[in-house]
Design a protein around this nucleic acid. Structure first.
Lengths: 211, 211
DNA sequence: TTGTCAACTGTCAGAGGCTGTCACTAGCCT
DNA sequence: AGGCTAGTGACAGCCTCTGACAGTTGACAA
């Protein structure tokens, strides 16, 4: 079992995390100061920076957990599966298991609210895209290894992952700007968009009817 | 003809821009302060902020010109052309015309160096990705209009543009990390990667030989 | 030419993010 | 019990960015 010191640390970290997300999602990211977060968690500003690298870091603490979960899910897919199919299954599994992934840190509802705050805050959107790029690099190396190709000589792993990432981004955006914020909604949207990549690339959108 | 006041303004802006890019590309973005840029351009710090919204803004001043050029090139493509083909031609045209697009502000060589600085600086990469996302939204609306579909009801325009953007991003990254920084290199790489999207999506990378 | 107006600029003050330092307290371990 | 160390708070400082105010310079008409 863990020591008292570790439990105290854990509680401080969680208090800071919850306070931050609560403030970000209600009064907005830019309009929340680190001092306010620290005050809400009842610690000094300096202590905040001992737990999180910065304001941005705490905003993505939960997203980081889901990203790791996704990478692990890809790694767990059967080796024979086609790359794009493995990614598809992994991301859908990720949404199904989101409760177990997130709930240990914060309520799912707060996570989903934060998700939308990220999409609608330019500074956070930028950080989100950069983090996604890093995850994509990880996945590309994973796929390359799986398929036995050299990730630096063969562009196909990175291309496939970039295409997949692009679809996910479009999905996130549409979900955030829509009005059905349920988990089922984004799951459906993900599957539907992945099915439409082929038709989207062929062009001739006028004649090709429809979804 | 332009007035003396306008010419002075233009010169101040250019001095700031050149000084900034020169400092960013030599000593690095993070290790350059706004005070240093202002000092190099022989104006006060406050004046810097009157010409550029911030440190990030000046870093992307030239990129902004090429982005606008790209959007204009897409708009100028013949209406009958398939969407992906229009994007392909527009981006290749962009690289061909890069000299005329950029040289009015700074030397092309400085632009290319800055390009690499952006890719290798996390904060700038994040901003670059966010800006790319904004450009992609513009292009998606353009394509939707061209093809006569509703951009909010039909996901295909945004999907096609996201896929295209993903390929461009992979291309940029490979160009920046390689050792051939010529314009011809990135042009070739762009064309080659666009040709590989199909094969990358089909999977079966082991059997499908090769480029 | 000269006076007036608007644009441009510099100086100053301040908020907010972030880091380094240092001393102090609380938990841990012998 | 007492030493050790992780965790903490208080303080000072750097850098980005903004607002307020005053001084300067170019534009333009009388």
């Amino acid at each position: 079992m863990e020591t008292l010191r570790e439990r105290k640390k854990q509680r401080t970290r969680e208090a800071l995390l919850r306070a931050a997300l609560e403030l970000f999602t209600t009064r907005g990211y830019e309009h929340t100061t680190v001092d306010e977060i620290a005050e809400a968690a009842d610690v000094s500003q300096r202590t905040f920076f001992r737990y999180f690298a910065g304001k941005e870091d705490v905003a993505f603490a939960v997203q980081g957990m889901t990203e790791e979960h996704f990478v692990a899910a890809v790694r767990a897919r059967p080796a024979g599966e086609a790359p794009m199919e493995a990614l598809r299954q992994a991301v859908l599994e990720g949404w199904d298991a989101i409760r177990e992934t997130v709930e240990s840190a914060v309520p799912v509802e707060l996570y989903l609210r934060m998700y939308r705050t990220i999409e609608s805050t330019p500074a956070l959107l930028a950080a989100h895209l950069r983090r996604s790029a890093a995850t994509e690099e990880t996945i590309a190396r994973l796929l390359a290894e799986r398929e036995g190709v050299d990730v630096d000589a063969d562009p196909r792993p990175r291309l496939a992952v970039a295409v997949f990432g692009g679809v996910i981004r479009v999905t996130e955006r549409q979900w955030c700007t829509g009005d059905d914020f349920s988990l089922e909604a984004i799951r459906q949207l993900t599957a539907s968009h992945l099915d439409q990549v082929g038709p989207a690339l062929t062009g001739n959108w006028r004649t090709t009817e429809d979804r």
